[in-house]
Computed example of a mutant assay.
Amino acid sequence: MKHILFIILLCSFSCFAQIKITPLDKAAIPKSITYTGTIVNAVKYTDSFGETIVITSQTGEYPSKTETDGSYRDAELFAYCYILQDGNWTQQWKVYDFTTECPVDIEANFVKNTFAVTDLDKNGKAEVWLTYITGCHGDPSPSTMKVILYEGTKKYAMRGSNKMRVGETEYEGGQYTFDEALKQAPKVFRDYATTLWNKNITPKF
């Protein structure tokens, strides 16, 4: 009996050590779950909190609501986490960011191929990683860049700017700071965030 119990516990830990995610298309998202914009990522997984759906979306640029001449534009991005509780999908957290009233090049979008769901500290709680940029500029100056991590409802953030070439051998940007939560988080979180940052610090055109 002890051997059977040990095997069950070992299996449970192994299952949560690697979070298996299932991509969802628009038709597979429950009707009770609402979101704004065009879907970038939509996944379902199960961790120690239960069955979960995470969606990231962005609007792209559109005419600014506060300007009438059509030369100013807005752009927004969103991330939603829903958890199944008592048969109902309940929003656990939401991320919202934007750029508004921009007359030049506008950005508010997730960095391609950076969305991830991990369990780096192997505690059975999924970590959701979001990386995105926002900005409004008519020259090759850096944009604001953020790496946001959620484990359950606990939020961690890494904020700074991407790195842009502004001269023959001159670059601007690339600096970042950890918020207090990430400073106090397991080292493996900071290591992953730093790797993610450095891999995407220079925009790929």
Score class of each variant (00 low, 15 high):
143 S>M: 06
173 G>L: 09
82 Y>K: 04
66 T>S: 11
100 T>D: 15
161 S>E: 09
107 E>V: 11
81 C>I: 00
185 A>R: 02
21 I>Y: 00
88 N>K: 10
111 V>G: 08
89 W>K: 08
146 K>R: 10
87 G>T: 02
127 E>W: 00
161 S>M: 07
148 I>E: 03
39 I>C: 06
88 N>A: 11
180 E>P: 00
147 V>I: 14
9 L>I: 11
81 C>M: 04
131 T>N: 08
37 G>K: 13
31 K>F: 08
147 V>A: 08
118 T>Q: 09
8 I>H: 03
10 L>P: 01
11 C>S: 13
35 Y>N: 11
39 I>A: 11
19 I>K: 04
25 D>H: 10
121 D>A: 03
167 G>T: 04
194 T>K: 08
159 R>T: 11
195 T>V: 12
77 L>Y: 10
21 I>M: 06
8 I>G: 04
1 M>N: 13
148 I>F: 00
189 F>H: 00
120 L>P: 00
179 D>K: 02
143 S>L: 10
104 V>H: 07
195 T>M: 13
114 T>E: 11
106 I>L: 15
74 D>C: 14
158 M>Q: 10
33 I>A: 10
190 R>Y: 01
129 W>V: 03
3 H>Q: 13
202 T>D: 09
196 L>M: 09
201 I>F: 04
75 A>C: 12
52 T>P: 04
181 A>P: 01
7 I>D: 11
176 Y>C: 04
132 Y>G: 09
59 T>D: 08
19 I>R: 05
1 M>P: 08
16 F>M: 14
31 K>V: 12
49 F>M: 02
74 D>S: 15
121 D>E: 03
154 K>N: 10
11 C>I: 14
140 P>M: 11
3 H>I: 12
